[in-house]
Structures are given as C-alpha cells and as structure tokens.
Design a protein around this nucleic acid. Sequence first.
DNA 1: TAGCACATGTAACTCGTTACATGATTTG
DNA 2: CAAATCATGTAACGAGTTACATGTGCTA
Lengths: 185, 185
Amino acid sequence: MPTTLGYALLGLLARAPRTGYALTQALRAPIGYFWTASHSQVYPELARLEAAGLIRHRVVDGPGPRDTKSYRITATGRRALATWAAAPMPRPTERDELMLKVFSLWTAAPERAADLVTRQRAMHVERLAEYQRIDAEMRAASPAELRDPRTPEFSSYATLRRGISFEAHALTWCDWLLAQLGGTA
Amino acid sequence: MPTTLGYALLGLLARAPRTGYALTQALRAPIGYFWTASHSQVYPELARLEAAGLIRHRVVDGPGPRDTKSYRITATGRRALATWAAAPMPRPTERDELMLKVFSLWTAAPERAADLVTRQRAMHVERLAEYQRIDAEMRAASPAELRDPRTPEFSSYATLRRGISFEAHALTWCDWLLAQLGGTA
DNA sequence: TAGCACATGTAACTCGTTACATGATTTG
DNA sequence: CAAATCATGTAACGAGTTACATGTGCTA
C-alpha cells in the first residue's frame, strides 16, 4: 500500500504521464492547495511506486546530465487509485495552528490580537479571489465536463468548490472575531 | 523557542496547573478539536519547557509508583505565550486527505464516490451537533466572559464558533457534491 | 478478580522539511 | 555572464505515532 503522497502522485499520473520534476511542480499548484511535498520526497516515492508495479518509467533524453524519466500509471496503479479514492476514511487529526493561537489569544492585548486576525483575513481574501478566478476559467473552458463525475475536470472542480466555501467561511469568522475584539478594546 | 506542542501545553497551563496526564487528556478534548499529541510526546516536551524556564513542577504524592508532577506556568512562560499567540503566522501548509481523494474520485464509480461523501457528511453532522451542545452550555455558564477578549472563555468560544462555521460549510459542500454525483449516476 | 483510570516514561519507526550536491539549457 | 529553469538524487534532522514498560487504587 502506497503512502498518501503515493496516491497524490498516482492521482496526477492518472491524468497524464509526467516527470518527477513536473509532479513536484503540480504539488505546489493545483494539488498544493490541499497537499504538498518537496522533490526530496517525490523521487524516493516514485521508486517505491515503481517497485510495487503501480507506475512505469521511460527514459526520455532531455537536457542536463541525468536521465529524464517520464512516468506513467499502470493498470494495477489505476485500480489501486480508484479503490483508495472511494475508500472510507477515519476522521483525520485536525491540526490548526491558528486555532491554537486563538485558544491563548486572551493572554495578549486585544489590539495585537486584532492585528493577527486582520492579517489572516487578508490571506483569505487573496486566496478566495484566486479560487474565483480559477472558477471562472474552468466554467468557460469545460462547462460540460464539470457536470460529469467520471471526468478529471469534475474532480478538480469539486475541490475548487470546497476551497471557495472554506475561504468564505473563514472570512466570515475573521469578521466576527474582529467585531468582538474591536467592540471591547 | 518552544515547538507548537509546547505552546499548546503553555496555553493549557496558563489556565490552570495540571499534571502531564491531565495535559494529555486535554489534548483529546477540547484542544483535540484542533491539535493533538500523545503522552509520549507530552512528557519530553514538558521536560524541555521546564529546562527553558517556562514552566515549573511540584511533586504531589499521588497514587502509583511514580511521582505525580503538577506543572504550572512561570511569568516568563506566560510572556512567551502571549507573544507567540499574537505573532503573525505564515500561511500553513494545508493537508486535506479527503480533497486528495476527491481529486481522484473521477476514477471510481459514482455510487462508491457517493458512499464516501455520505459517510463524511455523517461525521460533520455528528461533530456539528457536538459543537452546538457545547455552544449552548457555554452561553448558559458564562455569558459575560464570552464577550470579554481578556478571558479564557472568550478564546475558547472563538475556537468553537470557528468549529461550528467549518462544520456547517463542510456539510453544505457534501450536499452539493452528493447532488452532483446522484444527478448523473 | 478483571479491567479501567491514573500516572510517567523510553524506543522504534514514519513522514516531512531543509540543506547538500550536480549540471545543462535558456533567458535577461 | 549571471540567474532562473529543468532535472534528479542523498543526508540530516525534527515532529508525530505506535508499541513497549511499569505499577497502584478503585470499581463492577
């Protein structure tokens, strides 16, 4: 059984063959919005996936001194991915450092607390705008595919909707907290 | 500088002195809603915090063969906590395994996909009800403190509001996705 | 009398980050 | 000609989980 990162890589390779380098870049965006990894994690994981027969590579003579390896998913890999994707998950361990700060925010001066929340709010505004730009782009590019659950576009769009909903909720909460902090300061 | 876990422990000790065991329990609930740690992580961290002068302990002769150590925060620890709590944060690396599954959900049969989302939905319903019960409890127990940003109750309440908002948004998204999956299946 | 709550610690292992290491091609 | 991009790998370290280890007092 691959690690979570392994399934992230399989998920990308199920859409198109790629090099380790291209996979690493995809792990910044769009996957980076909900999962990340650095190249130092990617290369060993690719070796493990290949040893397990879930992917194969072909050497494409590219630039640089090393082999440029193009990876593709195998039929076995594709089956493993589909099984994992729909398999039920235990409730994951939530880890939100901001909430941990908020839990102890009463020890700080309300003005300093408000500064923190204002910065967070700005990040959410920025991210929300980014998502909404992508939303418009996707709707324009492939309106039909977005409605068909068997297309990769549908999957991508579902994660995007989640992102938009999350940022909107976070933003609302920031505004509520700022009102609370301001009202008493 | 303590680790994030260190600040979680300081945050608890700023409210009341506790043993390592009691701290470990608090890391299941209420802190467990946004940060967790097992006792094997807690005990070494307490030793580090004490070495740094942020906490002190007093041996209280309790049951069992070992010393029962009651920890309390020092003035230095309290200052370190307040500084950290209001300090700006870089955007944390999001890690959402469910989104990773959704990203590859197009490879699975829509009925299996719907099963997964239905289970997730149930978890959110359950957690939301739990939060709303706590909400009612807190409003009844300390209505005045909830409005004063310098009380621990205010901080706890702010994290709770975030939790409620998050679960509600997640629930809405599950319903949207189920409609999409059902409509085409 | 068996199991659970209280109570504290260490060891082995996995996952992830940062730093180390190399080197060609393209662009400013 | 300097910097960024393409491209692949290893090493050291930190954070977190699971398992190992011990032992008392209370309750069903």
